[in-house]
């Protein structure tokens, strides 16, 4: 699978994109075509996203068939600061309420599966 997370950055960055024609910021990056205006190819440029945003919805998954994601775990829907909406898994032991800030972090070395290595958590408090 194409890498959509830059795990070398700290905190990890999401590999998003920006449309040079209409300005849409999107995730993940692709050059098939802009979902808003249809521009494609070089009109779509890589644009790293900070992985920081606001929680819009959350739920606890009680049952899940995939053993790589043992239930229970929480998922959140996050509006990223740059615009795109993403959904991701919450770090173990963390509670993120609707309206709270969320930050994507690396929590595990998951071998070659970057998606298992990142979770959303509460960002550190600003001093």
């Amino acid at each position: 699978m194409t890498s959509i997370v830059d795990l070398d950055a700290e905190p990890p960055r999401l590999r998003g994109g920006t449309c040079r024609v209409c300005g849409l910021v999107f995730f993940p990056f692709q050059t098939y075509g802009c979902e808003q205006c249809g521009a494609y190819g070089d009109a779509l440029q890589p644009s790293p996203l900070k992985g920081h945003g606001t929680v819009r919805a959350t739920t606890v998954v009680h049952r899940h068939a995939d053993p790589r994601r043992p239930a229970p775990f929480s998922v959140v829907q996050v509006d990223l600061d740059e615009g795109p909406m993403v959904r991701g898994v919450v770090a173990e032991g963390v509670e993120l309420e609707v309206g709270a800030s969320a930050q994507l972090v690396k929590v595990a070395d998951a071998g070659d599966d970057e998606l298992l290595a990142v979770r959303f958590t509460a960002p550190p408090k600003e001093s």
Partner: peptide, 19 residues
């Protein structure tokens, strides 16, 4: 050829539970 951050974690009942 593209995918989200946790497509495998969000089955339909999880999507509708978020809603």
């Amino acid at each position: 050829g593209t995918h989200g951050l946790a497509d495998d974690a969000i089955v339909p009942f999880t999507h509708f539970s978020l809603l």
